[in-house]
Structure formats: C-alpha cells, structure tokens
Design a binder for these strands. Sequence first.
DNA 1: CGAGTATTTAACTCTAAGGTTATATAACCT
DNA 2: AGGTTATATAACCTTAGAGTTAAATACTCG
Lengths: 125, 125
Amino acid sequence: MEDSINNTFSALADPTRRAILARLALGETSVTELAEPFEMSMPAVSKHLRVLEHAGLIERGRQAQYRPCKLRAEPLRQAWGWIEEYRQFWEESFDRLDAYLKRIQADESSRKKKEKRHAGNKRKR
Amino acid sequence: MEDSINNTFSALADPTRRAILARLALGETSVTELAEPFEMSMPAVSKHLRVLEHAGLIERGRQAQYRPCKLRAEPLRQAWGWIEEYRQFWEESFDRLDAYLKRIQADESSRKKKEKRHAGNKRKR
DNA sequence: CGAGTATTTAACTCTAAGGTTATATAACCT
DNA sequence: AGGTTATATAACCTTAGAGTTAAATACTCG
C-alpha cells in the first residue's frame, strides 16, 4: 500500500510513461502504436509498459498477436488522494491574497472616514 | 515546466521524502528534527532535502545555525492538476455501477409490469 | 579566539533505471 | 510447415539515486 504509492509516483516521474498514459486516455491500443511517437526502441517502450503495469496503471490483454494496453486509473486515484491532503497549503496563498484584499478594502474605507493616518503602516509579513 | 513535473513526481516517489513533507505540513522545522525519525545519517537526509528543494517542494531559511525548512505546495498543486485530468477514469467505475443499478431498477419495474421477458438479457460490455 | 552545534560537501559504494542490439516467443496467414 | 508481424526477454552499457564516513563550513556563545 505504502509500496504502491511509491510505484505510482515513480512510474509517473518519467515523461515517456506519462505520454503513454495520455495516449491511453484516448482509448485502448497496441504496443506498436504506443511506441510510434517515441524515438526509442521497442524494448525500451516494452520496459516502460512493464513499469506501468507493475504500478497497476495499465492492464494488458491479448488479441491475436497484439497485446492491447488499457488505462487503469485506480492508482492515480490514490496518488490524487495523497496529494489532496496538502491542498490547504496551496490554497493558503489564495487565502492570504483574500485576506490582503480585505485589508486593503478596510484601509480604503477607514482612509475615507479619517484621513489623518499616514502611509507608513507596516504589517507583519 | 515539463521538467518540473518530473522533479515533483520523482521527489514524491521516495517514502522518506513524503514523510518529510508530512512532517513539514505540521510546521516549519530544523534539519535535525526532520532527520530524527529516520534510521539514516544526516547527510542522507540533507540530500533528500536538496531533492525536495530542487523540486520546489520546500524552502529553506537561515536562523542562527539552523536552516529551517518549510513546505511549498505549489508543485503539489501542479501534480494534482496533472492527475486530475484522469479523474473521469477512476470515477468511471462508479458511473458503471450507477448505470448498472439503474438497469436493475428498470428491470425490476418492467418485470413487475410485464412478467413475460426471460432472464438471458445480454448487454454490451 | 576557540569550543560546540547544525548542516553541507566530498569521495566513495552499490543498486536500479533507462537505453541499446540481438534473440526468442506467440499468433497470424498462406 | 514456413514466413510475417507483434511483442517480450537476455545480455549488456552508462548514468543516476540513495546510502555511507570523514572533513569542511557557518553560526553561537563564553
């Protein structure tokens, strides 16, 4: 389980493999067709597929001499879930921006009310 | 940009680094404290931190002889966004289940209405 | 300044990852 | 059976990753 997320993330760390997944999102296809866009040998692609399969990100069938590959998104769901836990941290900046805008607004209105306060109004960073 | 997602995913592929991020989610802290839970040397942890920093997942400050680390979630947001694109694929099974349940329900009611239709009612898979 | 603490860098080892070419396997088609 | 197509495996090379220990650096404090 812990292991599976390792496999997922390390599978996703390679651009060739991400491209393969992107292609598979359009639909099941053969190894040869998957290999076509890449400037690398078939065995290299075959290895990438093995990694993806091992990570559970693809399934392979058999259809005549073809071994069609198909996306399996379950591990992506897990990875997504892991990252999701940190969501508050990237939304924080929006919160800060929001808070900042609110402060600005407050300043605007208080400046209108009492014009006396001068500009050097430092805030904690 | 393409590169940065490589760095993010490969940084996340290591359990030590994920644990470090989890710790940092609780708040900024020193390298020594980060290293404490792990059975590995300081230089090893230091290297992990360098990887995380290079991926933009942490920031480091200076405070006396300490070099406090702090979570930076922006790359997580990107990674999350990348995975998010595949969301429909892991939700598909729920959709299928949903569709299945609807079919069952339909069958139930139609069975009640006209009891004549027999069971071998194949559907496309 | 000099000792102590926190952290990084250097130099090295070991294993795994990603690629290659050449060869094997599997199923198809006469 | 024998040739063709699709894919996988074997054996190999090169580089990167994760660890180690030992030494350097960057501060603090008395």
